[in-house]
Structure formats: C-alpha cells, structure tokens
Design a protein around this nucleic acid. Structure first.
Lengths: 166, 166
DNA sequence: CGTGGATATCTCGATGTCAAGACAGGTAAG
DNA sequence: CTTACCTGTCTTGACATCGAGATATCCACG
C-alpha cells in the first residue's frame, strides 16, 4: 500500500538523485499526519460547538485539576502561543462564560484563569469524544504496533522536550 | 526517558481515570513532533532568506521536474491551502522574482506558474540543507527503527490519502 | 449550436496570530 | 530605602490565511 509520501519521495529521487532523501519517509509523514489529525479533531470539536484553540486552553485548565485554575503565563507556555494571543483567547472564552478571570491574591501583577462549571462540562464531553475518535484512527494498528510507534516517536521527541533550544 | 506526552497522559489519567487515554501516546506525539519540526525547518529556511510558505510552493514546482511549471490549482492542492492564499503567495513569489506567471495556452481561464532560474537555485540549496537537518533529527534512531517508524506511520496515513473524506 | 453546470483564478472582508513594546508590580543588591 | 532589573499581562499594528463570492472560460448534453 502506497501513500502520498511514497510518491513524494519518488518524485524527489527522480529530480535530485544526488541526495539521500530517506529522512522524508519519517518526517514528512509526521507533518502530513499531523495536518490530517488537525482536521479530524476540528470535526470532533464542531460537534461540541468548539474550536481547536478553545479546546487547547480548556484542556490545559482541566488537566491542572481542581480548582482548574492557571495563570495566563502558564497557559501560554502550555499551549505554545504568544502572550497577545493568549490575552485574546481568554477574553473570548470569558465572554462565552467558559472561564473566569480573577486577580491573583499572591501577586498583584497576576491574573488567574479558572474553568467555570459550564466550561468543565463542555471540555469533558469534547475530550471524551476526541479520545474515541483518535482510537478509531489508530484502528489499523495492533496494540503492539501502537506501543512500538509511541516509543519510537518518544525518542524523537525527547531532545526537543529536554533541550531549551526548542 | 520521559517526554512531555508522558506527563500529559499521566495528568489526564489522574483527572479522568474513567477514560482510556492510550491513543494520546501516539497521536499527541505526532502533533507535538510536527510542531517542533516546523520550528526546526523554519530555522533552516531563514539561513536561506526564505519562509516556510515560500519553500512549500517552490518545492512543489521543483518536484514537478522540467519545465518546473504548474497551475495555481495544482499548487494549492499540493500545499493544502485555499485559492485566495495561493494567489497571494504567487503574487509575492513573483514580486521577488522566484516564479513567473504566464497564460496557459491550452486553457484561457488558466495560468501557469514557472520556477525561474533564481527560484530553482534557491530551493535546491534550501532543500539540501533541510534534508541534512532532518537526518540529524533522526540521529537517535537506527536504520531499522526508521524503516519501522516510516512503515507504521504509512499505515496511519493511507486511509487519509485514499479516502476523499480528508 | 446553445445552454447549464463545472472549473480556474482572483478579489475582498474578517479574523487569529505574532512581535514588539507599554506598564504595573515584584525582587535583590547596595 | 532606592535603584535597577526582572516578570506578568495587556495593547497595538502588521500580516498570512480563510471563506465566500465574482468573473471568465470550458465542456457535455440536448
């Protein structure tokens, strides 16, 4: 069975026979798969009237555990966006009642963003559906294959997650 | 060795012990790795005074082989962007002299976008560097591991690349 | 032929993101 | 204290992308 990356590598090999393009077999697949995954996730979120960026922020809060509260700074580091973007996102989530801002009693510069009950309900439902959908996407792999894949991906990821040079 | 996804899965398990979040081990890693990969690629491109979107378009033309010419329609399908985006990209690439637009003699609605000599030189140099950099990123994996990984990723990708439901 | 629908490209307005900087509050050294 | 630097959040302006729609051309069928 062939995929688009096989065709892509073949085309490069024909055009640049001087180069060893073997790395593309792994890394182009990672990028393309991530792209398809984004679309699939978006489709799950629309069923919950939610967008990807909302899910990202709400899950970060949800994962934090009770009282489901983090500073904007921690949120932007968790979701890998800039501070301006995070301010904008919190504004909109607050206007739809999914989170609430309050001053940080420990630090007068700071703010705490807390998931409302409505926000928690929404994100829990969306997350459950997302995991189900992702399980379907992995349907073609045996449990052993999944473990192998996870492990190989981890070894690619570790350098990024340890080095601050990311 | 642990990565961020191990911590993420652990956090979810603590908060939602009712859910089987095993799919995250594979698919969250795919997304996160793609994100890091984007940054790494961007770093390569800046060394060539190029941005990611430029590289995407130029490589699509380069892969097509002589005369390095494709229609905007084929380009937008190859790069998965909308038509408005592709018009804008071609405009900018044309203004920097990396591509040239000409009317399609076969179809008066159509346009053909061709890589200039300057464009070809630039993209060839950037591509060679990119493959080198990607080879480094795969350094922690044996050749056998790389083949295994490529093969497992392919089986996840095939459904997307065959079904039109992407 | 001619008509209706499909196709190719471009235009336009809205929007989410980023980068840089503003500003208030914290923090440590003298 | 107080000065100088650091940190946390928000503001602003620029920009790439998207989605919807406009226009022109092609093509298959009657």
């Amino acid at each position: 069975m062939e995929d688009e990356v096989d065709r892509l590598v073949e085309a490069w090999h024909a055009e640049r026979p001087d180069l060893d393009v073997e790395p593309l077999h792994v890394l182009s697949r990672v990028s393309r798969l991530a792209r398809h995954l984004d679309r699939a996730r978006r489709a799950v979120f629309v069923a919950h009237g939610m967008e990807s960026w909302e899910f990202d922020v709400l899950t970060a809060l949800r994962r934090a555990g009770p009282p489901y509260e983090l500073s904007p700074g921690r949120l932007l580091r968790a979701t890998l966006v800039t501070s301006g973007t995070m301010t904008n996102r919190i504004d909109r989530l607050e206007s739809t009642g999914l989170v609430r801002r309050s001053p940080d009693p420990q630090d007068k510069r700071g703010v705490l963003v807390r998931l409302t009950d409505a926000g928690r309900t929404r994100v829990d439902a969306a997350f459950a559906d997302l995991v189900d959908r992702e399980r379907e996407l992995l349907g073609s792999l045996s449990p052993g294959d999944r473990r192998t894949l996870a492990s190989l991906l981890r070894s690619l990821l570790v350098p990024f997650d340890t080095d601050p040079a990311a």
